[in-house]
Simulated assay, not measured.
Amino acid sequence: MSEPDQPSTARMIDFWLGGEHHFPVDVAAARAFEGAYGPCAAIFRSLRDFLGRAVRSIADAGVDGFLVFGAGVPSQGNVHEVVPDATVLYTDVDPVTIRLGQRLLAGSDRAGYGFGDATDIGTIDPAQLHRFVPGWGRRPVGVVFLGLAAFLDDATLARTLDELYEAAAPGSFLAVDFDSEELATYPAALAMMGPAFRMRPPTAFPPLLGRWRPTADGVVPVAEWRTQGEPAPVPDAFYGAVATKPTA
């Protein structure tokens, strides 16, 4: 794979998680962001731990197929590693990340990677969708929607989550996160996120879920969601939830 000349958030996160699937341009961007803000590695490890607890809870409810949007690099504790008996379709819109993901998953018959725009489920290859998320629309699945809400305005986010609700079968689950206003006092870091980046106060998160019903855990800082023992001592940069589409 040729080395890209632009950094990728997905590969920067891989670097922060201690992975091996990133390039010097990603490391440089990650270091620059750390200089402007600080505890990136700890925060993204906490978010990845939330992903693990969330998908395990969904699998424990009997779900064995997952559709992942904005998947990034499929390593370092991602869905197919946490629930190896499940089938998983990872999707993203970045062609470099997709090619990397396809290379990493080339030997797997339970996890695939393809193009998918979270705001338009019709962009996913139907053959891939039905291969790796069998029964999509007819039996419960897990939808993973992490790292995306901050780049969608309220109307687009609400519409997208409602369309996923319509498409998923009753009994399905949604794992989702939201960016808090943590970066508001770090103008240099905030500038690096670009004009599309949206922070929201915690009170804004539940209404955006629409018809999805959060579990009794609610929408809480990701370090606090079903954690065992004391939560990780990280800033509340991300809030998360697992929500359901009721069966009746």
Rank of each mutant, 00 (worst) to 15 (best):
S75A: 15
P74G: 09
P84H: 13
V96R: 12
P74Y: 10
V79P: 02
T91V: 10
G70E: 06
A71I: 00
P84T: 11
V96F: 11
F66H: 12
Y90S: 07
D94V: 06
V93P: 05
N78F: 11
D92E: 04
D94R: 04
G77W: 10
H80T: 09
P74D: 11
V88S: 02
P74C: 08
G65Q: 15
T87K: 15
A86V: 07
F66T: 12
N78D: 15
L89M: 04
T87H: 15
P74A: 06
Q76L: 08
D94Y: 09
E81P: 00
N78W: 02
V96D: 15
G65E: 14
P95Y: 10
S75Y: 01
T91F: 02
A86Y: 06
V73L: 06
V82M: 08
A71F: 00
E81F: 00
V68G: 07
L67Q: 09
V73F: 07
T91P: 03
G77H: 13
G70L: 03
V68M: 11
D85K: 10
E81N: 02
Y90K: 02
P84G: 08
A86G: 01
V83F: 12
V83G: 09
V68P: 08
F66P: 13
S75V: 12
V88D: 01
G77T: 12
P95M: 05
H80A: 11
G72R: 01
G72N: 11
D85V: 07
V79N: 07
V88Q: 02
A71W: 00
H80K: 07
Q76W: 04
V88W: 10
Y90M: 03
Y90P: 04
V93Y: 09
G72E: 06
P84I: 12
T87M: 14
T91Q: 07
E81M: 05
H80R: 07
A71L: 01
A86P: 04
T91H: 01
G72K: 03
F66C: 12
P84Q: 12
V79F: 05
P84F: 13
S75G: 00
G70K: 05
